[in-house]
């Protein structure tokens, strides 16, 4: 089943073009599969199914192997992610200083389970492993921004802050 291009939006098409360009330079022998998946993840924000097919055919790696790798690593997601990925660090230091309560607060406020995305595609909630900022425990990351010493009560405010940033941006664009 070849991927019918008309179904894809224009942005996805250029992203696909960049992916194909990268694939052309990659060879299966030097373990090109994971860098290819990482490229797809960074381009699309997640690894869509048609990207898996492209990677499988151009690197000549069976789909079963590609699927086995993409479902093994925590970093890859095959569902579209929210604009803001909230990762709560569940490292030992954070856990001992109350990260679980922070995670529960986020689950309540966003009405999400870990790994879920809000219907408005704004937030994805993840439980992450140690980010290496244990001095500022408990820590959460929103995309690449680290928030330190987060208290459960501050969670509502944080969500509101990003919601407003979104509306604000919404008006501008």
């Amino acid at each position: 089943m070849t991927m019918d291009t008309n179904e894809r939006t224009s942005t996805e098409l250029e992203q696909l073009a960049t992916l194909n360009a990268m694939l052309a330079r990659t060879s299966r022998e030097e373990g090109g599969l994971i860098p290819a998946l990482q490229t797809a993840q960074n381009l699309f924000g997640y690894v869509p199914h048609f990207a898996l097919e492209h990677i499988s055919t151009s690197l000549r790696i069976p789909m079963a192997t590609v699927y086995g790798v993409v479902t093994f690593y925590h970093f890859f997601s095959m569902q579209p992610r929210g604009k803001y990925t909230i990762r709560i660090c569940l490292g030992t230091a954070c856990y001992v200083l109350g990260a679980q309560a922070v995670l529960d607060a986020f689950r309540e406020q966003l009405d999400l389970e870990v790994g879920g995305t809000t219907p408005d595609q704004l937030f994805t909630l993840e439980a992450g492993r140690c980010f290496g900022a244990c001095g500022l425990a408990p820590v959460i990351m929103v995309n690449d921004v680290i928030h330190q010493r987060v208290r459960p009560e501050a969670v509502a405010g944080l969500i509101q802050h990003y919601r407003e940033a979104e509306q604000h941006e919404g008006e501008l664009v």
Partner: peptide, 20 residues
């Protein structure tokens, strides 16, 4: 025939035909 592979991880590991 390159159809089978392991998918997912840890306790959820399962034998998968192509992409499950």
């Amino acid at each position: 025939n390159d159809t089978l592979g392991f998918a997912y991880r840890g306790a959820d590991t399962k034998v998968s035909f192509d992409h499950d």
